[in-house]
Amino acid sequence: MNPALEFVVRLVVWLLLAPLLPGIINRVKAWVAGRRGPPVLQLYYDLARLWRKGVVVSTLASPGFIAGPAVAWVAILGAALLLPLGPLGASPSFRGDVILLVYLLALARFCTAWAAMETGSAFEGMGAAREVSYAVLAEAAIITAVLTLSLQSGSVSLCAMLAPAAGPGAALLAVGLFTVLLAENCRVPFDDPNTHLELTMIHEVMVLDHSGPPLAAVLHGAAMKLLLFSVLLVQAVLPVGKLPAPAAAGVLAAGVLAVGVAIGLVESLLARYAFRRVPLLLTTGFLLCVFALLISWDGGGA
């Protein structure tokens, strides 16, 4: 395919399809609870409405309050564009792009936490503190997963790392990455995306003061991040890159759908964990990735 066309297709997938995934999760939750639930396209309506709404900005906030969500959104989009998308390889693929991906997500975290500190609100300070603290453990788990894939494929570029299957440690890696996905995207049992005024929240509390277009950027960025982690998880475990193009696209879509359903089921069946147990759960995710790493170390690979 023409590289320019391919790039446009990838951009369209990330920008337009990302808000679908939270809708699917909400449908699953509604189905399990026996409710009718919001429409699948609810987030699209919300984004369109927020984009037209006015902004209320704290008198304490600096221009960074608006720049933070914008830069975070760009960082997440950049990270997403580094990821190969089934039959569409990553366009700027180079050695070490996986490290750039991890650090772009860190940049997004820095900007979100920065914008949270802008308002001088005790709640947002608390949320930012929790976000950056738990990210230490999440980052360790992600880099261990990356190491596993790198050792498995003998490469440091995302295209080569994600093409083959994860080998013998696939199940461990999948569970470990799924734990990180839940933590990084503020899902139950780490956080509850439904509540807005609970003392036990992490992410939602950081965006309490955002409104209008900046909030739309935050929500769209969060949806892209969720899709990014789902795509990463599916491609890390399944040999998507080795399949013919139509099959790869189908497998990837089915895999992401399965991840969405799994998140919905987890949210329906589990309660949010007590706050003290969050580090423990994240450490478990990290250890699962370490075991996957040990298996791929011992199991040969490239």
Binding site: W51, R52, K53, V55, V57, S58, A67, T119, G212
Partner: peptide
């Protein structure tokens, strides 16, 4: 985003 926020209406307020 800065321009958009100013175009749709910018209301200063107390921190929520």
């Amino acid at each position: 985003l800065w321009r958009r926020a100013h175009r749709v209406g910018w209301m200063p307020g107390v921190t929520w």
